[in-house]
């Protein structure tokens, strides 16, 4: 356990070293945060509610989305693509450390840095615009929210791990990754709450794992869901976690065999 903590702290230091790329990542998030925040506040200037969201709820959706995106949808998994194509991955495999655990620790450091930065961004925005944030009426919602966030955390970890493993088979995974990430962000509810979409599209999306990454935890936080839907959501998270975890581990093992067979 201790060695994974070292990986975590080393990655943390590395993130501080690469401030330029950190800055770049955050500028992207801030630009999205600002444009969405102002878009919704302009839209709700003349109406009290939109799709059942109050003004405060809608703006809180955008603000909390920034936090959740920083915590859930951030990963170092894409580094794996480079590590596989350059052959550097072998050096991890030779050491007495589990790559899975290594990745988890590394991801966690990224998430801590991003979350810290995202919190700062949100507070700055709140301070500048003197806005108010929605806070759940019951502690039960807060509790469920945190459970859902951790569920989302693991789902995304397995998902990113799975998709990055494709690099074992092709050296050209950069384009597909770009495409996948965009698709994921839209269907997870990063750019807009999924309520905006027609009901049949929503129903269709909810069979997929993506809405349970951002949209579902936020709906709990904003208390838009009855208990039955929350429980149903947890069930879906659980099912997807198992499926993704199982497939990711299988694909990884298979990819490793292909990789070793080709001599790296």
């Amino acid at each position: 356990m201790k060695k994974y903590f070292y990986v975590f702290s080393l990655s943390l230091q590395q993130a501080m070293q690469h401030r330029a790329s950190l800055l770049m990542d955050r500028v992207r998030s801030v630009a999205l945060l600002l444009s969405l925040y102002f878009l919704w506040s302009a839209l709700m200037q003349n109406q009290d509610s939109f799709l059942g969201y109050s003004r405060t709820q809608m703006l809180s959706y955008v603000l909390c989305m920034n936090l959740l995106r920083a915590f859930v949808l951030s990963t170092h998994a894409w580094d794996m693509v480079g590590e596989i194509s350059s052959g550097r991955i072998s050096s991890y495999l030779l050491r007495p450390i589990r790559y899975f655990g290594f990745c988890l620790a590394r991801d966690f450091s990224q998430k801590v840095v991003f979350l810290g930065s995202a919190l700062l961004e949100v507070f700055l925005l709140l301070w500048c615009l003197r806005a108010t944030v929605y806070f759940p009426g019951s502690w039960r919602s807060v509790f469920f929210f945190f459970v859902a966030v951790w569920g989302a955390f693991f789902m995304y970890f397995f998902l990113a791990f799975l998709v990055s493993s494709l690099a074992f088979w092709t050296s050209e995974s950069a384009g597909p990754l770009f495409c996948f990430e965009l698709l994921l962000q839209f269907t997870a509810g990063v750019f807009f709450p999924l309520d905006v979409l027609p009901p049949y599209v929503q129903g269709w999306l909810h069979v997929l794992p993506f809405p349970y990454l951002i949209y579902f935890p936020l709906s709990i936080y904003l208390e838009k869901l009855p208990l039955s839907s929350i429980l149903h959501g947890f069930m879906m998270q659980g099912v997807w976690m198992v499926i993704l975890g199982w497939v990711a581990a299988g694909v990884w093992r298979k990819g490793l065999r292909v990789y070793m067979a080709e001599g790296g």
Binding site: S173, A174, G175, P176, L177, F178, E181, L183, F186
Partner: peptide, 13 residues
């Protein structure tokens, strides 16, 4: 393959 991925991503966006 990579090119198609980028193109699709841009169209999706």
């Amino acid at each position: 393959l990579s090119s198609v991925g980028y193109l699709l991503g841009k169209l999706i966006r």
